[in-house]
Amino acid sequence: MTERKFQRLAVSELGAWLGANPDALILDARDANAFAAGNIETSVRLDGRNHEGLIFSTPKSRPVFIYCYRGNASQTYAQQFADFGFRNVADLVGGWEGLQKALAHRPAVDAGLATWLNNNGFSDVQTAGTHGNTPLMHAAWKGEASVVDALLAAGARVDAVNNDGNTALWLACVSNDPAIVQRIASAGADIDHANLTGATSLMYAASSSKPDIVATLLALGADPLIQTQDDFSALDMAASVECLQLLRAATRTAKQA
């Protein structure tokens, strides 16, 4: 059996992948009529006559995303691109039909949220923008609690990560708003998620001298014993007496457990 060298994306993963790869070549492997009736923005139609030209004219460092009707033909094309040395290739499980079904069942976005999305440069609730930040990340970073609530109600994912590997929970910590941190955590966010450097939200809050956020995260169950790639814990990073005291107590309790 040939080893698959490309990534298969679920519809729920598509927005984050496109946000993380804004320069991706998007290829639609459906017929001309289907493509004309509707397609993903900026996509190029792919067929048996132009696929070799695209393979040889596209830099192999460029990400490639391919979708078809139901996710079958896209796998064949994706494997071809991967076999020719493209390092970041993905296709869509369920294809265009799966995407349309997901969109049809997506919670409605009210007029106020739609206006906010448009004013902040977002096309929809899930698709990421600058630096891979989703609308939920952006609202959390700006400390806009009512928008955070609206986005969560509209189905915004709390597990999406930006280009640094941070989630909306981390961005909520940046805004220094314990209520937003609690709201995102209650929606199912991983309290102990670590970014690309191995740092958690608790570590960030400690190093940024945000004792209210440290206290909130600890109350939500954040693990003070987790260490970064350089073996530093949140306690090691504490930048204020208040954070130091909170983390000393939490660390003692965690070690005794």
Rank of each mutant, 00 (worst) to 15 (best):
A24E: 00
W96M: 15
D83N: 14
F84N: 10
A37L: 03
K60A: 11
A78C: 05
R70Q: 13
E97A: 11
L103E: 13
K101L: 14
D83A: 12
K60D: 07
G53E: 01
A37E: 15
L9Q: 02
R8D: 08
F86S: 06
N50S: 08
D83T: 07
A20R: 14
R8G: 07
Q80S: 15
N50P: 10
T58V: 01
G94N: 02
Q80W: 12
D91M: 02
D91A: 01
R45E: 03
I26M: 07
L99C: 05
T42I: 07
L25I: 01
A104T: 12
C68A: 01
F65W: 02
A78N: 01
A82C: 04
N33K: 10
N72S: 14
T58L: 04
A34V: 04
V93Q: 11
D83P: 12
C68M: 06
A73D: 10
R70D: 15
Y69Q: 14
D28S: 08
Y77V: 01
N50V: 06
H105W: 09
E13N: 03
H51W: 15
F84P: 06
C68F: 00
I26V: 06
N21S: 13
V89P: 09
G48H: 12
Q80M: 12
I26D: 03
Y69F: 15
F35W: 06
A73G: 04
P22V: 04
P22T: 12
A78I: 01
F65L: 11
G53Y: 03
R62F: 03
I66C: 07
Y67P: 00
A73E: 04
I26T: 03
G71P: 04
A32Y: 09
A82D: 05
L103S: 12
F81L: 04
F86I: 04
T42D: 13
D31M: 09
F86M: 03
L25A: 02
V44Q: 14
A37Q: 07
Q100W: 00
I40P: 07
A36G: 09
P22F: 05
D83L: 13
A29H: 02
D47W: 07
A32I: 12
L46P: 07
A34P: 05
L99K: 07
Q75N: 09
A102K: 04
I55Q: 08
K101R: 11
S74M: 05
Q80L: 15
I66V: 10
E41Q: 11
D28L: 06
A82N: 03
